[in-house]
Design a protein around this nucleic acid. Structure first.
Length: 622
RNA sequence: GGGAUGGUGGUUAAGUUGGUUAUAACGCCGGCCUGUCACGCCGGAGGUCGCGGGUUCGAGCCCCGUCCGUCCCGCCA
């Protein structure tokens, strides 16, 4: 039923009276708090916002008024408006108000630290929309809020008022906008897929949703739209994208939330290069439009094998050198026991101009570092410093034969003043540890100093098709529909570990921001992959029968990619945590501190779902 | 599941070897102040030291358990 607007009823016929009665809310704001400049001087304006700070000088009160676009200084004084001044005197932090006043040029008194610092508003009229309790923490205009994350999450709506957070979510909004614009204009359909899907064991742990209508049965929240988007290709939609929520019930990290957002893309008749093209364009558009940064026209490609060999990582930070140098061949029979018995010996050469700060004590600390389990757990760190005369110091120098020293120095490009750091261990351990050591030295030795290319995108290609789980069985490295390279199909049976896939990741400054693959559309190849994975026909039918059935009806060759929107937002904003670009994130233990979720469901609800719970550990919530 | 680290007025932190009345800054409240901009000056209020147990003449501090935050490993594209 239509309701009569109250102001409509009250509003008298005559114009001047209307002005006096109308609330400032009805008048509407003329500007935001971020846009007034010197050229607006003299204008009469209405601003809405929150009281950011108040500086009471007695007969003159300055108030910083804040909205999402900025902060503008208000000036209250009795000569500007008696009533306004009285109200200004009563204002407190975070009151929500409207003001009317005249823009004044601050002249030589301007605050050059503020974009609106050239002007202030001489306030003649104030309307207090609502008063605020003293907030539990100060809404600081930068990162100095001081409040612990615990408290910030509990009062998330206040935390989000902070200008830095407002900026983060502006960027996030723009990422969505430009993604939709570019991909839609590029011929992609934005299509939706279900969040509640069939439960398929394997891969990430699923959140389960009990079915009321089907007692004892469950949906799963989608880990990703993977299978549905492939079915879209069977349906002939040709190019699809979606900005979609995904759910994974795995333990959280700084850059991992239980629900997160993907830019999900799939294309028919795809090759890896044909996927890279629109994704590169997308990154270029985002960086140009949002950060005004011109990215390279194409991003370099590097095979997984090369990335592992040169950086020990499938998501290398290529903003600096310090690459891994394999020296296993050169130190075979070197005379040094540590090297001779090892499966793989590899090292880093810290150049002379950076090696100065690597004192004996600093290297001892690095030795401790490489031994830690989270660094990869090497047995130790062999090292040597090369003297002016080319001699090697320490145990490595003493034990490694001169001809081996020469060969190693040559291979590593090492000269006087360099420090060489070696790990001798199993292949995987050596590479993992050196990767971690390399990143540690990046920070410790400030190796990014003077870096003139702050955004280094990289495509990592040709991932292994399979990896081994702890039981030694092959499991899909990506997912079981990933296509192997055509020339590797025969290896699926003879040597699965050697098979490389048409799978790729997009890496930015050492962060994986997306990944995808060309999918299998040939049932013979699919069958071989299932066999290599130890999946019987029955199991495959049970898990993916509907997809295999669909693939009997002329599936196009297709492939796609998924980008982590949250991670992209985190990198673009410089946020330190995913939580700073997700409006209402969960804590590391998966709780929402503001609402208290998750909570225990009551019995009637559980009964509806035919659920009973087992003994629940009683929590002491103090 | 494991490791590390933190929890002390509203907030952020200090708190020595276990010892008298638990400090400080910011915030808050009151007063003064007409050019501040993290305004300034004067005064004031505000504490179950996360929770439970133990050791002790005595615990913020030591021990055990537990809850919560953060980071990492396992796990996870």
């Amino acid at each position: 039923m239509a309701r009569k607007r109250r102001t409509g009823v009250l509003r008298p016929a005559s114009g001047w009276l209307t002005l006096r009665v109308m609330s400032l809310l009805e008048v509407g704001r003329t500007h935001t708090c971020g846009e007034l400049r010197r050229e607006h001087a003299g204008a009469s304006v209405v601003l809405f916002g929150w009281v950011h700070r108040r500086r009471d000088l007695g007969a003159r009160i300055f108030v910083q008024l804040r909205d999402r676009d900025g902060i503008t200084q208000l000036d209250f004084a009795a000569e500007l408006g008696e009533e306004a001044y009285k109200l200004g005197d009563s204002l407190r932090s975070e009151d929500c108000i409207a003001i009317r006043g005249k823009v004044a040029d601050r002249g030589t008194n301007a605050n050059t630290d503020m974009v609106t610092g050239e002007i202030e508003i001489k306030v003649s009229e104030v309307e207090v929309f609502s008063k605020s309790q003293t907030p539990p923490f100060v809404i600081a205009d930068d990162d100095r809020t001081g409040a612990t994350e615990n408290l910030r999450l509990q009062y998330r709506y206040l935390d989000l008022r902070r200008p830095v957070m407002q900026r983060n979510f502006r960027v996030r909004s723009q990422i969505g906008y430009y993604t939709r614009k570019l991909l839609t204009e590029g011929g992609f359909y934005e299509l939706e897929t279900p969040a509640m899907v069939k439960y398929t064991p394997g891969g990430a742990r699923n959140f389960l949703v009990p079915s009321r209508i089907h007692p004892g049965q469950f949906y799963a929240l989608a880990e990703s739209p993977q299978i549905y988007k492939q079915l879209f290709m069977v349906s002939g939609f040709d190019k699809y994208f979606q900005i979609t929520r995904c759910f994974r019930d795995e333990d959280l990290r700084n850059d991992r939330q239980p629900e997160f957002t993907q830019i999900d893309v799939e294309m028919s008749f795809a090759t890896p290069e044909r996927i890279f093209e629109p994704m590169t364009a997308l990154m270029r558009t985002l960086w140009k439009e949002i950060l005004d940064v011109e990215l390279a026209e194409t991003f370099p490609r590097m095979s997984w094998d090369e990335a592992m060999a040169r950086y020990g990582s499938d998501k290398p930070d290529v903003r600096f050198g310090l690459e891994l140098q394999a020296v296993t061949e050169h130190v075979r029979d070197s005379g040094f026991k540590v090297f001779d018995g090892a499966e793989c010996v590899s090292g880093l050469c810290v150049p002379a101009d950076k090696a100065g700060s690597l004192s004996r004590g600093a290297i001892d600390k690095l030795t401790e570092f490489v031994k830690q389990r989270e660094s990869g757990g090497a047995k130790g760190l062999a090292w040597t410093r090369i003297g002016e005369d080319g001699s090697w110091s320490g145990a490595v120098g003493k034990n490694v034969k001169p001809e081996a020293q020469k060969a190693v120095a040559e291979a590593m490009g090492a000269g006087p003043g360099c420090v060489l750091l070696f790990i001798a261990d199993a292949w995987e351990t050596t590479h993992t540890v050196l990767c971690n050591l390399r990143l540690k030295l990046r920070d410790q030795l400030d190796l990014l100093a003077g870096n003139d290319k702050p955004w280094q995108f990289l495509w990592i290609t040709d991932f292994p098709m399979f990896e081994k789980n702890e039981a030694g069985q092959f499991v899909a490295a990506h997912h079981p529909f990933t296509s192997p390279h055509d020339e590797h199909v025969d290896l699926l049976v003879s040597d699965p570990g050697a098979v490389r896939a048409k799978a790729y990741d997009l890496v930015l400054n050492g962060n994986e921001i997306g990944g995808g693959s060309i999918r299998i559309h040939n049932s013979d190849v699919q069958a071989k992959v299932f066999t290599a994975l130890g999946l019987s026909d029955e199991e495959a039918q049970f898990k993916f029968g509907f997809l295999l059935e669909a693939f009997k009806y002329g599936p196009p060759p297709h492939g796609g990619i998924a980008l982590g929107l949250d991670r992209v937002a985190m990198l673009m904003t410089g946020a330190e945590s995913l939580r700073d670009v997700i409006a209402f994130p969960k804590t590391q233990r998966g709780q929402d501190l503001m609402t208290g979720a998750p909570t225990i469901a009551d019995e009637p609800q559980l009964a509806d779902l035919y659920l009973t719970h087992r003994d629940i550990p009683v929590k002491d919530n103090s």
